[in-house]
Design a binder for these strands. Sequence first.
DNA 1: GTCCATTTGTGCGTATGTATT
DNA 2: GAATACATACGCACAAATGGA
Lengths: 236, 236
Amino acid sequence: MMSKYEQIMEEIIEHIERGKWKDGAKIPSETELMGMYEASRGTVRKAVDLLQERGYIQKIHGKGAFVIHKKNIELSFGGIVSFKEANERFKRGYTTSVKEIHKLKADRDTAKLLGVKAKTELDLIKRVRRVDGENVILDVNMFVSDLVPGLTREIAENSIYAYIEHTLNLQISYARRVIEVQPCSEDDRQYLDLNGTEYVVVVKNFTYLYDGTQFEYTESRMRLDKFYFSDIARRS
Amino acid sequence: MMSKYEQIMEEIIEHIERGKWKDGAKIPSETELMGMYEASRGTVRKAVDLLQERGYIQKIHGKGAFVIHKKNIELSFGGIVSFKEANERFKRGYTTSVKEIHKLKADRDTAKLLGVKAKTELDLIKRVRRVDGENVILDVNMFVSDLVPGLTREIAENSIYAYIEHTLNLQISYARRVIEVQPCSEDDRQYLDLNGTEYVVVVKNFTYLYDGTQFEYTESRMRLDKFYFSDIARRS
DNA sequence: GTCCATTTGTGCGTATGTATT
DNA sequence: GAATACATACGCACAAATGGA
């Protein structure tokens, strides 16, 4: 059962995405929304605040709330996005091939990245993403085995996140993400079609469960020309 | 005058940053905070929700709210950040030199980037940022002259954002930000110390005022090895 | 400039639901 | 089951910004 403010929010998103409430137009006032959805002021305000956070509208004190140009939404993908989700939004085809999958004991450096003690058992997975006939992304995932048990090659070929969230029923809450550019590693040269470039973009993900324990460290290493990142930043 | 929930939020941030409330520790419950600050439930909840959004704490239903490791905060700089602010956080020295500053009429492509009609008058500014004796960032700013009047070389040498926000008293509300990697342009070769690299990281900013009008388009073009981006992404 | 209606922003109080211990 | 803590939802009052009469 969705909460009331979530329902209101989803309905408003529908209106905006279907173009019923157009770019730049004023959406109904809080009082009007209260009537439309038979909800209290606090409830509609929560829905509307979330819409603003997600970049659908801009509220202006004393005037109202206005729809922001749709283009902004289509291009932005904030939040934690796995490769599959991100690619579906761009509607490109791709294939995943698992190059390595095995358990290992964490050395000191790896343990630090995962916030665990050295020698903790990990699952290491290396996968290559092939788009338009070229190997362009190398994903290196490391999971804490105790927290994410039962990983298989089959799961790695599909969506590990779907397995974690739906099968294991773990709740992912947030990720710290770092993006930088590094010289190519041996793995990069071996697995990727580099087109002569000497560098790759590296997206590092430190992912945490609802209770604050880190369960994953991932590096997505991709060819410079395949990297694209977009988000919306709001001023305090 | 700061609002009550902002005061509560700031005080809690103080506690966390000064280490009084340590990493992983439980902060006082909502009921306790109500007593401590003589505030209503809704008010303390708003403060606590904002703290979670900003990555200071993690709330867990039925258990409490817990401080997230400080390292996460120090490294992340979400939000709209000008070069000056971003660098101060890393405590590195830098100098800015203005290479070009003049008015021009927008051509068709530029007009599209700024969401204005062709031939609209713009202010173009090119600045080079020098860090540790090397020219590593080329900032190209384009402002809509009507919206941001009175730009001078002196302002460009310091902080344009401070001028816009404090002198012109305009309210910046959000920015759409795109990050990608491009081959070096003529300008890059001329102004930057490229160390033989053939590519630069380009951070594009489309910045909007409180009323939804775009007033700026900026490209920050930087050497691959000087690029670093970090944020915290929360699940839904 | 003043007054007024509208609209969002802040703050209070209360009740009930749900998760954890 | 009981106690505690966060989540949702309702209602009310007043402040602050906007825009038109």
